[in-house]
Structure formats: structure tokens, C-alpha cells
Design a protein around this nucleic acid. Sequence first.
DNA 1: CGAAACTGTGTCCGGCGGACGCTGATGTTA
DNA 2: TAACATCAGCGTCCGCCGGACACAGTTTCG
Lengths: 239, 239
Amino acid sequence: MRGGERTGVVRLLWGPPAKPARGPKPTLDLERIARAGIALADAEGLAEVSMQRVAAHLGVTKMALYRYVPGKAELVALMVDAAIGPYPAERGWRGGWREQLAEWARGLAEVFGRHPWVLEVTVGPRVMGPAELSWLERAVSALDGTGLSGAERMDAAVLLVSHVRGITQQARAAGGKGPAEEQLGAILGELLREHGERFPALSGALASAAASGGQDQAWEFGLHRILDGLAALIEVRAT
Amino acid sequence: MRGGERTGVVRLLWGPPAKPARGPKPTLDLERIARAGIALADAEGLAEVSMQRVAAHLGVTKMALYRYVPGKAELVALMVDAAIGPYPAERGWRGGWREQLAEWARGLAEVFGRHPWVLEVTVGPRVMGPAELSWLERAVSALDGTGLSGAERMDAAVLLVSHVRGITQQARAAGGKGPAEEQLGAILGELLREHGERFPALSGALASAAASGGQDQAWEFGLHRILDGLAALIEVRAT
DNA sequence: CGAAACTGTGTCCGGCGGACGCTGATGTTA
DNA sequence: TAACATCAGCGTCCGCCGGACACAGTTTCG
């Protein structure tokens, strides 16, 4: 039965654009629906995305959407793949694998930064769409010819995705737009000041980080650590 | 106004256990409520956790829960911190920073494996509880004396957490318990067989991975890459 | 020119989170 | 000991959610 659901989303993401013949002309299409949902999620957050609100933005009733989409889960899957979008072809193939992966990761971070709700909805097992797969393809292909095995190339891509996801989350918490997000760091500092004796290393690290100023180096830090680790392995394999 | 919500969850997670005086004796307490929610989420998934169901498991009506918890968000935050639990003190301080971090990461992966729903609910900015902070504390303290700055020690911990999260998600997709999860890999293979020409590197990597057998090396792969990258930096700093 | 196919709509359902007021149990105080 | 303030749990109500279903209007094919 759950397989049936999967096939629903698989057909929606991968199948042909559908070709009705006899009925009245559809006023909507999957792309317009997905874009409406994305606009809503970008502007007001994923929690505000409901069938009713998406439909209202399109000038129809919510039940009309069910003519195009089997359910909300499939709509969200559509939104995700459309929001991620295919890997931009103009992004160059310049440089070695290291420069390519760095640029790839930067691009992915931009996407997640533009659509933070994608993170919330891409936890757990799911079927990936063509756009998402095109990103994975690009990362794996950047590692072609490095001597890494197929599994290792995939593992490296997954590792980078994890870093991008983690940084995006952290960046949203630290430098988010809302005042609530800005206060989160203050709350953490307050808690550490109150319960500092229970977290000595953490307090020390945070104090030292605050003293030395810039704390938004986390992105570069993790990226360089991962790429250094990959470089070490590639070098070993090459010898 | 959102600040008010934060203080709610902050008081709940960090405040004193509350001391009623005059009224009837409460039949519940925060820990029992959190454990009931955790049991439900572990057994049937986060989607099945509702005020009604948690209350039913405790033998009360849902409105009784609101005497202990301001809302569902706070209940979930409580569940998260209780499910993660404080870092087990018996986990040794043996070895250098590398062995310590490896064991730390393994422990975190076990926690996420036991309570996969924690991943779904710990995306986005949030206030961390004492248990969650104790894990962070342990990771940062493992890097004390390595020559890394405070910010770098924190960034390293975040990087490891990201890897653990990513691997947990992937492991759940690949080797999950349900038959639906097992079919996910099959679906991916089928899609790549159909649209292989659009994803040549991916198809090649997956085929090579399948040919060489074991694909559950992703955990060790990412962990070693990160630790290697850290080691390289630490070595540079030491000279 | 039917008839079949399909679109958008209205209505209805169960379940959700949560506000509010009530009742009864409890400990403090006069 | 009696009165009272307090607080726990319950019942009711509300708006919103995702979704099932039947219906009416539109379009195209035989």
C-alpha cells in the first residue's frame, strides 16, 4: 500500500507531463502549483502551506488541486524538486575536483538559503526528483577519475550534503532574519552564563569565539576539513 | 511575542521542577509525559504523536497535559531532550581527541538510530536542552588542548553532528525496517536504469558500488574524512 | 448530436491544537 | 475546625487541517 504512494510521487516527479484529451481544459498545471507552494513557503514558512492557502493563491478551491496532485505529500515533493532546481549548467567545470566540489557545495548552500523549508521536509527516506538527482550527479562526476570507488564517490557527496545542511541550519539560527532567531544566540549565552559550571569547555569555546570576533567561519571550516580529508584519501589512492 | 514562547520552552527545559503548594496533587510529571511521547514516537512515528494520544497513554484527557506543558511544541522539545539524554559519563576519556570524537560520534549515531524522529524535529532554530548541550560539551572538550580556537572546536563539533545526522537519514532510507524503505533503493536503481543517460556518473558509481558489495561504509568513510581533515589542521597548528 | 471523459465546486467527515469555564480536591489561614 | 484561595483534571467549543465523494458544467471524440 505504501508502495502505491511511492508510485504516485514517482510518476509525478518522473512521469510524462500528462495529456488529457476529452475534458475541459485544465486551468492549472503542476509547475504553477509547485511555484505557488514555493512562494508561500518562502514567504511565510512551511507551516503556512496548506491545500487551502495554495489553492487560494491560485484562485481555485482546495479540492481542485487534488485533480493534479494525489495529496499534500506529493505536492511538497513537487515543491522540493522545483525549489532545488536542476544543477545550473553554467556553473563551470573549471579546476580540479576540489574547486568543483567547493563551488558545487556553495551553490547548494545558496539553494538551501533561499528555501530553508526544504531542509525541514527532506528528512527521512524519500524519492528524489530529477533536479535533486542532477545535483548528486554533478558531485559524483566531479570525483570521477580520482581513484575513488563508486561507493566512495557517493559517500563523499553525501558527506558534503550533510555539511551544507548543517551549516544552513546553524546559519539560520545564528543570523536569521527574525528577531527571535537573533535572540537564540543570546539565550544560549545566558544559559551558559547561568549553568556555565556544567559546560566548562563549551563556555570557554564560546567565550573565546566571541572574543576573537567573527564566528561565521563555520562554513569554510567544515568545507576545508572535508576536502582536506578527501584529498588525503585521494593522494593515498594515487600512490 | 515569539520571545514569550521561547521563555516558555526555556523555563520548561532549564527551569526548576516546579513546586505546587495548595492544589490537589498532580498525577503526572514532565518526565512521565515526555517518556509517553517518546514511546509513542518510537513505536509509531512522530506523526502519531498528538496531545490526545499521549494523554490517552497516560490515562488522562488531552487538556490535562496543558497543565504541565504550554503547547505541543514544548512537549516535543521536552521529548527531544529526554530522548537524547545526557552524554553517558561512563563513555571513556581514553585515547586522544580522535578516538574520543569517534566514540562520541558513534554514541550520537546510536541515539539517533534509536529515536529517528528526533532528526525530523531538530531542524531549524531552536533552544537546546541540558542533555543536548551536554553532548556538545563533550565534543568540544575532546578538542581542548589541540591548538584549535574556540570557534574551530565548535565548528568541528557541528561538522560531526551534521555527518551523524546525514548518515542516520541515509541509513534509514537504505536499510530501514519497513518494506517501503527497502524498496527505495530499488526505485532509485530503476529510475537510474530508465534515465541513466542523464546521470552517467551516478549510474556508474552506483553500479560499481553494487558490484563491489558492501555499501554501508558511508559512516566510516565520512567519519574518517572529517577526522583526517581535523588532524591535518591540528598538525599545522602544532608546528 | 449524443456520450464519454474530465474539470472545478460544495459538502461532509474525523482529527488536530488550543481557549475557556467548571468541579472537586487540597493545603493554608483565620 | 471552618472558610478560602489554589490548582488538577474534565467537557465543551472553535477554527483549521487533509481528504472522500457526488454533482454540475465543459470539452472532445465517435
